[in-house]
């Protein structure tokens, strides 16, 4: 009997579980073809890609596409737009779900609580296209809801859609509108996991509800909040293409053109594959570095990280 040798060897595992290996072939092929081949395809960032010679046959171009991008006047605008949008997004979007979760946690189970949860969670399931259309309709001059609201107080509403300065606010706040309820769920779960004896102790000490929130609830959800913040910071350069592209119009391009939309336009609309791949690769690398960096810092400071 060779059994019970702790870790199973590959040979023995193959013999006993060949059906499992058979099963996993197809999904693994998916990851190779649609995730890993694209990574190797990134090599076209260092080549002059043309359709005839293909990815590997096209001539090498060195760092030419990168230097061209870095010296392009549009470079700093893109980096600035991407960074400002995502940092704003991260900072404004962070506290609101926490506030919602803390407030929901204070009231007792019942119709009102369920209604608030159900309603605030719902927009999460609405598509980006519809969210953007709703935003445009609601903000549109003359007929939109917001315009009417301003009119009710006898004020003229600013031109939200035509002025580039409003782009970031529209992007960020429509996103908070959509996802705050969903994000709050994770904090609600963290709150439910807090040791009840801490509340008991707070009650014995005669703490007010607010003191209880500050001294028990907030420390209790800290680890969760840190992880969510790290994940957000790691995604800073990967801010969504989908929504920015939909919200773009000729009037707000100065602030709404971000790296992801630029990649799409250069690559697929102007068919400059190599240049676009170089910009995309630059973005991915910065993103990875940011994620790893933030994780290290967070481990040092708070003791909790992703891994």
């Amino acid at each position: 009997m060779v059994a019970n040798r702790g870790k199973p060897g590959l040979r023995r595992s193959l013999r006993r579980h060949w059906q499992l290996y058979l099963l996993i072939v197809l999904p693994l092929a998916y990851f190779v073809v649609f995730k890993y081949v694209p990574m190797t395809n990134s090599v076209i960032a260092f080549k002059d890609y043309n359709v005839v010679d293909g990815i590997w046959g096209s001539p090498w171009a060195g760092l030419q596409h990168f230097t061209a991008f870095f010296s392009n006047p549009v470079f700093w605008t893109l980096v600035r737009n991407t960074l400002l949008l995502s940092v704003y997004f991260l900072l404004a979007g962070f506290p609101i779900p926490i506030i919602l979760a803390l407030a929901l946690n204070e009231i007792r189970q019942g119709f009102f609580k369920r209604t608030v949860q159900l309603v605030t969670y719902a927009p999460y399931f609405i598509s980006t296209v519809v969210i953007v259309s709703m935003t445009i309709l609601i903000l549109s001059p003359r007929i939109g809801l917001v315009d009417q609201g301003f009119g009710f107080f006898g004020l003229d509403a600013p031109d939200f859609l035509g002025n580039a300065d409003y782009f970031r606010h529209i992007y960020v706040w429509s996103d908070i509108w959509q996802t705050a309820g969903y994000s709050a769920v994770i904090y609600m779960a963290a709150l439910a996991g807090i040791d009840p004896s801490l509340y008991e102790a707070a009650r014995v000490d005669g703490a007010t509800r607010l003191q209880k929130i500050i001294n028990v609830d907030i420390p209790g959800i800290m680890p969760t909040a840190v992880i969510i913040l790290i994940l957000g910071a790691g995604n800073i350069m990967a801010i969504g293409f989908e929504k920015a592209y939909l919200l773009q119009n000729p009037l707000n391009l100065g602030q709404s053109e971000i790296i992801a939309t630029y990649v799409y336009k250069t690559g697929l609309l102007n068919a400059d594959f190599s240049q676009a791949a170089a910009v995309g690769l630059f973005n991915s690398v910065i993103n990875l570095v940011l994620l790893l960096g933030v994780n290290v810092i967070s481990k040092r400071v708070s003791g909790s990280g992703l891994w």
Partner: peptide
């Protein structure tokens, strides 16, 4: 056997992606 390795291969794709253009070429 190898589930740790395969899991990390999969999770890695969350951290670093080929990007729009290279995927389009595939």
């Amino acid at each position: 056997y190898g589930r740790g390795f395969i899991t990390s291969i999969i999770v890695y794709t969350m951290l670093f992606a080929g990007g729009i253009i290279p995927t389009y070429l595939v």
